[in-house]
Design a protein around this nucleic acid. Structure first.
Lengths: 222, 222
DNA sequence: ATTAAAGTGTAACAGTTGTTACACTATTGA
DNA sequence: TCAATAGTGTAACAACTGTTACACTTTAAT
């Protein structure tokens, strides 16, 4: 079995690394590989186990009832996928999960997770914290979506990623992906971006952005 | 101390009821009362304890950066408030919490929660499930917000609450609250509602709604 | 019963976003 | 190097929503 970097995983980081092999040997789980662009999990699938992404990276996206795509996030190994849903009463996945490259998924039964939490306080604590952080992530998405104007969303998003006025920073999404992330149409996003550049609020060079006028940018949030 | 209906609380329901008194006696916690319309928790407050709503009801709402209000939900006792955030790395409350009537809040330190989870597997399981359900709730909110048209949101919302075509059902929110819930302007919501009534899709009498044409209503989601 | 407050219906207009279409540039693989 | 593909810039118009304003109805309180 390929070695997994347990220490890098948010829910396993506190495990005693010396026990790692024993830990993995004891664990009853199955591993499955997926190719690039393959659909790993479909929105609505029953979630009866913990899906741990051990190799590669995936994207998650929510398909709304009117067929639009709402980008959620990009996840890199090692990290669990939607861990909270293993325990929910209505245990269905809320998103589509698609492989961005060659991917390996470890599927750990719910009973095993329960056993780990019982016997391993550190695992339990990490698991709780990770789920709490996921909730916070969703809350942030909610906040972003609730900003009504595209420029407002952009301002919020740019402030979140910037280190300060004048300092260049990278956004590793293209316009189409950004538009999906915001839940808006691509040409509308492009229009807002070019207007903000014309107004001297920001500058854009490929995927490198600079905030030129944070005061003016902040006014878009008012 | 006023008796609390532990069995009705989602995270305590599996506790042995015979131990209830001992459970509450052992628990190191403080209780505080709030009056109607009093602000109990402010968005951004540090969350270093579990806030358990033991009496009354509250509403939670998110204030966006542009000052708009996004209604989240109405919570009735007994239920914990934002339990997941006790364990998050950035443990700040994501919402304002306001008392809708006379309210009592039990504040349980994080260390006590940890102890309960360690010593009481049923509590742990309930706590996990409850947090998972909360995540699912947020996901649903996200899905609702990501529907772009007001009529689409309404259709989604009405289907969610209806028992079927022709069967009346109650919506216990007025138009202003519904508009906040959807994150739209009140007159815009009223316009959409009256158009949907005129088109024969639904009927409205005070807070009683009926879906008259579910086929037509479903088309608003496409 | 009367008054104040809350909630609803509606209109006109401004503003923002979506849609569609097409030209152009950049990137990638053969 | 070339061709194919992906990504970007932009325009015109339609569609939808927000804003503001005001009349009206219902509810709650005194």
């Amino acid at each position: 079995m390929k070695k997994v970097d347990l220490a890098a995983c948010p829910v396993c980081s506190k495990l005693d690394i010396n026990d790692e092999e024993a830990f993995l040997d004891d664990l009853k789980c199955t591993i499955k590989a997926y190719g690039k662009n393959e659909l790993i999990i479909r929105q609505g699938d029953v979630c009866d186990a913990l899906y741990m992404l051990t190799q590669g990276s995936v994207k998650t996206e929510m398909i709304t009832e009117n067929g639009n795509i709402l980008g959620i996030e990009i996840i890199k190994a090692p990290r669990p996928l939607a861990p909270a849903f293993v325990f929910s009463d209505n245990n269905h996945f809320p998103v589509d999960v698609t492989a961005l490259e060659e991917v390996e998924i470890m599927k750990i039964p719910k009973t095993e997770i329960m056993r780990l939490m019982m016997t391993n306080p550190d695992f339990m604590s990490s698991f709780m914290t990770h789920n709490a952080n996921r909730t916070q992530f969703l809350t942030n998405r909610l906040q972003l979506l609730s900003i009504k104007t595209i420029k407002g969303k952009l301002a919020h998003f740019l402030f979140e990623n910037s280190q300060g006025e004048g300092k260049p920073f990278e956004i590793n999404r293209n316009q189409t992906e950004l538009a999906d992330f915001f839940g808006v149409a691509r040409p509308s996003l492009a229009r807002s971006l070019s207007e903000m550049v014309q107004e001297g609020l920001i500058s854009i060079n490929k995927k490198e952005y600079i905030i030129l006028n944070s005061k003016g940018l902040r006014e878009l949030l008012v």
